[in-house]
Amino acid sequence: MINALEFIGRNLIGSLENCGKVMLLIFETIYHIGHRPKLKNIVQQMAHLGADSLPIVLLTILFTGMVMTVQTAQEFIKYGAQSSVGGVIAIAMGRELAPVLTGVVTAGRVGAAITAEIGSMKVTEQIDALRVMAVNPIGYLVVPRFVACVLMLPILVVFADIIGTIGGYLVATLFSGIGSYTFLNSIKIFAEVNDVLGGLVKGMFFGGIIAIIGCHKGLTTAPGAEGVGRATTSSVVNSIILIFICNYFLSLLLYR
């Protein structure tokens, strides 16, 4: 019994300590954004973290849009509601599917890369070398990655919205017998600009989560190759969980 309580207590304290560290990292990152970070580093990270993720995001969302239509069209046609399929797909894409799936895919690709890179720098004393050379690791490493993720995720979401809807359109018109006009008109009737804008706001938050968790796990990596591996896994898992939790609250905030 005492052992169980001790276990719960230790884990609770550990979690609270981690939350505190993440909050501190967020504050320090915001503080260093105000101290003129180098544009070159930010642009480099935007290309590396954002643009390079586009193909995998597009591929994932294209098939999600297609499968969504396969499932919805079948049921909607049964009830004679085929004129709603386009709108449903577009709204689902804009509000939830595009931002969340882009976040999840990017967490796997970008979050892991951030943690692995910073983690290896930590275990090979490169972070200490930065500090000795009077360069703040948060300003130099975290800020460009944070800014790049916050700016690039919404852009990826825009592409995801478009490609997801195109995927839905193709399946609807080619295989489900819904006319092109019916599908597009349905989008025009049901979908609003806010559906897309809300998704972009979500994208910004998810980008921030991926960068902060990725950098935090990298900076707190335990020594050795095993430490880097564990930090990378933990970074991806934590980012994805936080994206889903954050998504629920953002949906309440943005769409109620």
């Binding site: 290896s120 720098m121 090979t124 004393e125 490169q126 200490d128 070398a129 500090r131 000795v132 050379m133 009077a134 360069v135 703040n136």
Partner: peptide, 22 residues
């Protein structure tokens, strides 16, 4: 850390495993 950085500008360190930026 910011105050330390002004002192560190006058210091250099050679690390055990070199710690070069790879």
């Amino acid at each position: 850390e910011d105050e330390l950085n002004t002192v560190r500008l006058k210091m250099g360190m050679v690390f055990q495993y070199s710690a070069l930026f790879d």
